[in-house]
Design a protein around this nucleic acid. Structure first.
Length: 531
RNA sequence: GGCGAUUUCGUCUAGGGGUUAGGACACAUGCCUCUCACGCAUGGAACACGGGUUCGAUUCCCGUAGUCGCUACCA
């Protein structure tokens, strides 16, 4: 276990590195969230620290059933492991915020007793009315005096209201006119004046739950979190968090902050959204998600045929770069070694799904052939085909780096590398199913099937008939001399016979896989069909 | 509107007061080859704009513009 020194306000303190990923279970995990979690994970591993999984379910109104399970399954698939938290144990629990009400109540009281927070009775409707009435209304030092709260009302009335169960909120009392500094690992010193901050709601009596801000600070403190690595959307409220640490007297152990830039949509402007994925045909979620309310299905990386290590590699490099030239192929272990928060880019990164496909392709062709059986087996099974592990290994060996034709968003026919597990079927179909028809207009067929070809194929077939040892070597021994002698180059036409189009592996290898009988049968059929 | 962040090839980025501004993806061409790919080689392609500071600025400072985020009893 490594312990690195951490500097807090110029005081050196030795603390074990502890970071957390704390999603809210309000839907499927966004791919940007996956990246945030990954960076936390890399940082924790690099420093031999702990990676905590916390559920921030303080908004009872937005809870979505199944979301928490979805998040856990996503990280399972990706191979990102937590050390403690919901479902992982640990002695800083409970890790689900809805189970920590007693704790938050206690700390709300601390702030109230210290006069650093106050009780407010203004209803959402009243607040809306104020916003209508006053331009740029903000609940702060300038306006709190005209609102219904414990600062403006007599104590007896406040107590009576609370006693009667009247709903209220607790607001943080912000002293105006102070420059609050946030020391950010990525962005340096960020200064915001406290006057522009509003008296944030910390706690709602209606559901007896804190808001994000309070729960976050209390939990991070109690769970001894040393570094808060989160999205840039939190930067504007970071000064509020600093002020909260100060109000509690926890400044000396306040975590260091690192605010990550956001993931942007691939084309045009704006943040990456679910709609972009639908429109451009790439997933924005790790796993397929079935919305329990609308029944809507959103595609996932796993179901699209991505490999988890490719998703991780691609995501890691969106906003971080080790700065070395050469290969960008990085294993999780290598990323752990090289990762550096201070080298994370400050500007948002457009999501480039073409490069994501490239990464996947690279991981596809680097995988050991024999490791494909589980995924490939599923693809084949979906087509009603059974194959042995040996057959699948053999097919993958021959095919895994081939191309596939596809139609892009503009309707253009294009070719691309085999990039996804789901590409395996269209590319390997002919291994298992013989061509039943031929497209005579196909460029490859047209070019390689001439007047004399049928006759040549018949001759070639009769040569193949004589092959006793039906292996690549056995065929070569008989056929190569014949090719030399006759001057006939049979390969492309032979490919038409066995595959039906201009793709596939080495012809001898394919023939060896199909067997003598099937090879000759396909040749006879093609000669018949193409005449 | 206010506040904050940000701006290097089409995209992800490296770099940094004097560089032929580097790499990866994508694109194009060539080589290899029984197809397609893989691989290899080559090529086109960028410092948002305007002022300073300086012998010299893409790099430092100040503006402007664009972009992103926040501005809830959401996280």
């Amino acid at each position: 276990m490594a312990i690195i020194p951490i500097i807090y306000n110029n005081v050196m303190a030795e603390r074990r590195v502890r970071v957390r990923f704390a999603p809210s279970p309000t839907g499927p995990l966004h791919i940007g969230g996956v990246r945030t979690a990954l960076y936390n994970y890399l940082f924790a591993r690099q420093h031999g620290g702990d990676f905590i999984f916390r559920i921030e379910d303080t908004d009872s109104g937005r809870f979505v059933p199944g979301a928490e399970e979805y998040i856990v399954e996503s990280f399972n698939w990706l191979g990102v492991k937590f050390d403690e938290g919901v479902g992982f144990g640990g002695n800083h629990g409970p890790y689900r915020q809805s189970e920590r009400r007693d704790i938050y109540r206690e700390y709300v009281k601390v702030l109230l007793d210290a006069g650093k927070a106050y009780i407010a009775f203004d209803t959402p409707e009243e607040l809306d009315a104020k916003r209508q009435e006053i331009e740029n209304f903000q609940y702060d030092a300038k306006t709190r005096g005209m609102m219904r709260n414990s600062l403006t009302m007599p104590k007896e009335e406040v107590d009576a209201l609370i006693e009667s169960g009247h709903p209220y909120v607790v607001r943080f009392l912000i002293e105006p006119g102070e420059d609050v500094h946030v020391d950010d690992i990525i962005r340096g010193d960020v200064v915001i004046n406290s006057s522009i901050l509003d008296d944030k709601v910390l706690y709602k009596s209606a559901d007896d739950l804190p808001t994000y801000h309070l729960a976050n600070i209390v939990d991070d403190h109690l769970m001894e979190v040393t570094h808060v690595i989160r999205g840039e959307e939190w930067l504007p409220s970071a000064p509020l968090h600093v002020l909260l640490y100060r109000a509690f007297g926890w400044e000396d152990t306040m975590p260091r902050f690192a605010h990550l830039s956001l993931l942007l949509k691939p084309v045009g402007n704006g943040k990456l959204s679910k709609r972009d994925g639908d429109k451009l045909g790439f997933p924005v979620f790790p796993l397929e998600w079935h919305d329990p309310k609308s029944g809507e299905v959103s595609s996932g990386y796993r179901e699209k045929g991505y490999l988890p290590e490719a998703v991780l590699n691609f995501l890691a490099l969106l906003g971080w770069n080790p700065g070395e030239e050469g290969s960008e192929m990085l294993s999780l272990d290598e990323m752990v070694k090289l990762f550096d928060l201070s080298k994370c880019s400050k500007n948002g990164a457009k999501f480039d799904f073409v490069k994501a496909a490239w990464f996947n392709h690279q991981y596809m062709i680097r995988r050991e052939d024999c490791e494909w059986a589980p995924e490939f087996g599923k693809v084949l099974a979906a087509q009603g085909i059974e194959a042995t592990a040996e057959q699948m290994t053999e097919v993958v060996r021959m095919m895994k780096m081939k191309v596939i034709e596809y139609v892009d968003a503009q309707g253009n026919k294009k070719k691309r590398n085999i990039s996804f597990v789901s590409d395996l079927w269209p590319l390997t179909r002919f291994f298992f199913v013989a061509p039943t028809e031929f497209d005579k207009e196909d460029k490859f067929v047209k070019k390689n099937w001439k007047e004399t070809t049928a006759e040549e194929m018949k001759q070639f077939a009769s040569v193949l008939e004589t092959v006793a040892d039906w292996s690549v070597e056995g065929m070569k021994a008989i056929c190569d001399p014949w090719v030399e002698e006759s001057g006939v180059k049979p390969w492309n036409a032979w490919r038409v016979c066995l595959v039906g189009e201009g793709q596939g592996p080495d012809m001898y290898e394919l023939a060896a896989f199909l067997g003598k009988e099937e090879t000759l049968r396909r040749m006879a059929f093609a000669v018949e069909a193409l005449n």
